[in-house]
């Protein structure tokens, strides 16, 4: 009886040890599974809003980036379990990280390619920068809040992103040394599109700006610079909503 008890305890200890050793692997599997679910949600929403976005689905590069970037590593510890929900999250200092669907379509609308160089104004959590870094050659990111810049710098380095250059400062003047850019993402609140940023955009390139309240992006402004340097914009509503009914609506 005594021997049976000792054997039982040993088996229990060995199994516990195996389970403990397997924990990180299990965690990453769980998060990978959640990322896959999040991506499925994004795919579904992109399909629902295909008219608004003027495209049927996300491109493979963006899908691949979303499947890889560990969002849970870039949100506050207390909110990790919500990291892959399709919802905005507070990241401290009154800043939020947009819902994954918005980050996805902002990235998609820029139509980036592997060799591109992209500027991000407003690093925040670093998630958007990480997504961009999975797609393009080099990402330049500027953050104005010192604590956020420091945190994002550490997190992105820990995750092994070597193609993101991050600096603390005023994003209004862009990053003249590294310009022109193939795409610009302005996630920081801006009352207007800074003229220096427009100048730092390559002909044929695009800039994306979300407009809205703290937690809700109400519309996206896609600024486009034509090959002959003419600047225009497109207002995109990231929600499938039929604004009118009946004969004036020309819909439904």
């Amino acid at each position: 009886m005594q021997r049976a008890l000792i054997s039982g305890c040993l088996v229990w200890l060995v199994l516990s040890g195996l389970l403990w050793a397997g924990q990180p692997h299990s965690d990453s599997t769980v998060y990978a599974q959640r990322r896959a679910e999040m991506l499925a949600t994004i795919d579904r929403m992109v399909a629902q809003t295909r008219q608004e976005l003027d495209r049927e689905h996300l491109g493979p590069a963006v899908r691949n980036a979303f499947a890889k970037v560990p969002r849970h590593e870039l949100v506050p510890e207390a909110l990790r379990r919500r990291a892959y929900f399709n919802e905005p999250l507070p990241i401290g200092f009154g800043q939020t990280i947009s819902q994954p669907y918005i980050v996805a379509i902002m990235t998609e609308l820029l139509e980036l390619e592997a060799g591109d160089r992209v500027l991000e104004v407003g690093t925040g959590s670093g998630y958007q920068a990480a997504v961009l870094a999975e797609i393009v050659q080099q990402v330049y990111s500027i953050e104005i809040v010192p604590e956020l810049a420091e945190r994002a710098r550490n997190d992105l380095a820990r995750l092994g992103y070597t193609n993101i250059e991050l600096r603390l400062g005023d994003g209004y003047f862009g990053w003249a040394d590294a310009s022109p850019f193939d795409g610009i993402v302005v996630t920081a609140a801006a009352s207007h599109v800074p003229p220096p940023l427009v100048r730092q955009l390559k002909p044929g390139a695009k800039m994306i700006i979300p407009v809205g309240r703290s937690f809700f992006v109400q519309q996206l402004i896609l600024v486009e610079k034509s090959e002959d340097n003419e600047v225009s914009s497109r207002l995109v509503m990231p929600v499938r909503f039929v604004p009118l009914t009946g004969r004036h609506g020309q819909q439904e």
Binding site: M45, Q48, T49, N86, Q99, Y101, I102, G212, R213, F216, V217, Q218, P238, V239, R240, F241, V242
Partner: peptide
């Protein structure tokens, strides 16, 4: 319609 958009960020509307 707003409520059906609840899960997709449509509550901003």
């Amino acid at each position: 319609e707003f409520l059906t958009l609840r899960g997709s960020g449509g509550l901003g509307l």
